Amino acid sequence: MCNLCERAKDIPEYLELLSKMQEEDAMRLATSKELAEEIPIVGRSIYTSVNWPVKLYHPMFDARVAYSVPSNYFQPLYLNGEKQGVMFAHGAMRSIFFAGERLMVFSKCLNHYREGEFFTSFLFLHFEPSEYKYNIAEDGTLSISANLEKPMKNLITGKIEEKKVMFTFTHKPVVGRIVTRERVLSSAQFRTIYAKYGGAQLRSASIDMEGYAITVPHFAPHPYMLQLHEKFGYKSNREFQEHVIDYFKQHLKF
Rank of each mutant, 00 (worst) to 15 (best):
R7V: 09
K9S: 07
K9L: 09
E13K: 15
L15S: 01
E23Y: 12
T31A: 13
P40D: 10
V54P: 01
K55M: 05
P59H: 02
M60S: 10
D62T: 09
R64D: 10
Y67M: 06
Y67N: 09
Y73L: 04
P76C: 10
P76M: 12
P76F: 11
L77Y: 10
L77C: 05
L79G: 00
N80C: 02
K83G: 00
A89R: 15
R102S: 15
V105G: 00
S107M: 10
Y113D: 05
F118N: 05
T120Q: 08
S121I: 09
L123M: 14
F127G: 01
E131G: 04
K133S: 14
A137F: 07
L142R: 01
S143P: 05
I144G: 09
M152G: 00
K153D: 03
K153M: 11
I160A: 03
E162W: 01
F167G: 00
F169G: 00
T170R: 07
V175K: 15
T180F: 07
R191G: 05
K196D: 13
Y197P: 01
G198D: 02
G199I: 01
L202I: 15
S204I: 02
A205P: 00
S206P: 00
D208Q: 14
M209E: 15
V216N: 01
H218P: 05
H218F: 11
F219G: 13
H222A: 11
L226Q: 13
Q227I: 06
Q227H: 12
H243A: 03
D246Y: 08
Y247G: 07
Q250M: 11
F254P: 11
